[in-house]
Simulated scan of single mutants.
Amino acid sequence: MPEPLKLQGIPASAGYAEGPLFNLDPVVARYKGKATAADERLALETAIGTATGRLANLIQATDGDAADILEFQLAMLEDDALTGPAFAAIAAGQPADAAWRQALDAEIVGYETSDQDYFRARAADMRDIRDQVLRALTADSAAAAPTGAIFYGEDIAPTRFLETDWSAGGGIALKAGSTASHVAMLARSRGVPMIVGLGASPADLAGVALLDAEHGGIVLRPTRAEVEAFR
């Protein structure tokens, strides 16, 4: 049996959770290029429409701060200033996925490097927007997490958080992330244990995890004695 792996991060939302580790880091799906620029434009328009519909459905199912986050994303997707550069790149010969990624990555950098906290906090929303449309372009749906899972990865999208049923337990352990992020705010308001800033870790982690979001620690591959002590 491999040795237990103990990682230390920063508490973002207090609590404890035990559950199967679920890898958040996406598997990149391959986009199939279209025959003409008109077809590429239609593919992007359709993908944006899919993402817009998903956000609208989520907004109907939530309220408060969560609805504010989703409404920001929806407004951005409906803003020609955001989508225009991607359509211009398609007209210049780029495939839809590359054009969209290029346009959104440029926007994301602007948000991440802003000297205002408000805009830096919105960078995660922009990444969420980018990835929702890319998933729609490749017809790639996010893998379903098991009940009570500990979500583990670089970061978690606000929409992923809001689509998860936390009533059965579970938690979040992020290699990066921030205690000031929108997801951290949502986790605190819903009592979902969360830690951030774990840093790099070995690949292909799996199995049961013990999340201590009171002190910022997580134990991967715990021994039976550690599980019993944790409980």
Rank of each mutant, 00 (worst) to 15 (best):
L5Q: 01
L5W: 01
Q8V: 01
P11Q: 04
A14W: 03
G15K: 00
G15E: 00
A17C: 03
A17F: 01
P20G: 05
F22E: 02
V27M: 10
A29R: 14
Y31F: 10
Y31E: 08
K34I: 03
K34R: 15
T36S: 13
A38K: 15
E40I: 03
R41N: 09
A43D: 09
E45Q: 15
E45M: 15
T46P: 08
T46Q: 14
A47K: 10
G49W: 13
A51Q: 10
T52G: 10
R54S: 12
R54Q: 14
L58H: 09
I59R: 15
Q60M: 12
A61V: 07
A61I: 08
A61C: 11
A61D: 15
D63Y: 04
G64V: 08
G64F: 07
A67G: 09
D68I: 11
I69K: 09
Q73P: 03
M76V: 12
M76C: 13
D79A: 08
D79C: 07
D80Q: 14
A88N: 06
A88Q: 08
A91R: 05
G93F: 02
G93K: 03
A96R: 10
Q102T: 10
D105R: 15
A106G: 04
V109A: 12
V109K: 14
T113W: 00
T113Y: 04
T113A: 09
D115S: 12
D117R: 12
Y118G: 05
A121Y: 01
A123I: 05
A124V: 11
D125I: 04
D125Y: 13
D125E: 13
M126H: 11
